[in-house]
Design a protein around this nucleic acid. Structure first.
Lengths: 209, 209
DNA sequence: ACAGTAATGGTTCTCCAGTTCCGTTAGCTC
DNA sequence: GAGCTAACGGAACTGGAGAACCATTACTGT
């Protein structure tokens, strides 16, 4: 019988990692400089000093490249302090989102990934995974607010965190407006007010507010 | 000197209107059946029974075609009843958004237009215009709530309406989830709670909630 | 150190989205 | 209802994105 069953050793080290890193950096540069619409894999390969064959083989599409760029970004977890105050924590979260979306490179990346995710399923998965991990990082501060009795028991922490991001992304995507401090502040306050009013109680759809 | 300055008569009637209508219908069909990524102008032209030259000349790009499709949709204003109750009105609004996004044709159109708007400025303008008119249609119900003293004076009605849509679009775009009744209900309640708490007071950024 | 083989890279080729060209059709004006 | 020309349509053309091919490079395990 055949030994080793055909699957050779994987080689993520050395050159492969170097190629991946330089392609991702080049892709980020190209995205920031020329924008999503003008992205072309051959140009990325040229900037990265890498054969375009390699880029086509390993990523295959702009969408996949964007997704990989997002995964790379997701590695660097942004630690956050907890203030012991729901509104303070949500403000910190809103401010993180605001700064992320306003950052030229990251902002362009997020709009590009969201756009690509509307037609490319792997990219959509990467995007979901990114937000799920972000939400998981931030949910504890809502859980603590529940423990303090600041927010009704049974509130879904994840839903509260998502409520903070929603208006900021919505404005960016539908109106092209980068969120400013006031918008971030409103987003945090609105989420806090809704959470305190019991809007995010899990399970049942209550008629009362 | 040249007389008439070169601008001939415009001919929007008859054939031109017919061509536009059939191309838009075909584009909507193609979008619903094959999805945004597989859209191609030649196929749209074939479906419409129209020369592809015509489609390229009059629209020139998928993005422009999507924008035109949205403008067409914006014509049919959806009249809405006013219940005399803020939450009721916001629920009606949330439900309109929910039904729009769940409708196969309209939902696909909106995600396509939002994606295209991230790189195509004319499409972005069409999108902004669409939402501005929708928001303008719905803002009065918030104004009435202010008059009734249901919501603090100085609240920005448009901001409240936008707050209803935000979480529904956010979920769709970042998680690929079509909004259900529960989500629409939460969106309406969250916006109402935040509005009543004075989160959408125009002008100043207040530290208190 | 050395064999074995992932993985890369240059080149060439293919194919089709988008353009150009020009003849034809049919609104608009008088 | 006749002429003018805006707008359409078929066909041929083209440029460049992406695939195919195979030689070359350099990780990995022994």
């Amino acid at each position: 019988m055949g030994e080793g069953s055909g699957s050779g050793t994987i080689r993520p080290g050395g050159r492969t990692a170097r190629v991946r890193a330089s392609v991702l950096r080049a892709a980020g540069d190209a995205l920031a400089e020329r924008g999503f619409a003008q992205l072309d894999l051959a140009d990325v390969a040229r900037r990265a000093g890498v054969g375009k064959t390699t880029v086509y083989r390993r990523w295959g599409s702009i969408a996949a490249l964007m997704a990989d760029l997002l995964i790379e970004l997701a590695q660097e977890s942004v630690p956050h302090t907890e203030t012991g105050d729901l509104l303070g924590d949500l403000r910190a979260n809103a401010d993180l989102v605001r700064r992320t979306l306003r950052d030229p490179r990251q902002g362009a990346l997020f709009t590009a990934v969201i756009a690509a995710a509307t037609w490319d399923e792997p990219t959509a998965r990467a995007l979901r995974q990114f937000y799920d991990s972000r939400v998981t990082e931030w949910a504890p501060c809502v859980a603590q607010a529940i423990d303090r009795g600041d927010v009704p028991a049974g509130t879904d922490p994840r839903e509260v965190i998502r409520a903070v991001s929603a208006p900021l992304y919505y404005r960016l995507l539908t109106h092209g407006e980068l969120p400013d401090e006031a918008a971030a502040d409103r987003a945090a306050k609105a989420a806090a007010a809704a959470a305190r009013a019991g809007v995010f109680l899990a399970g049942h759809t209550d008629s009362s507010v």
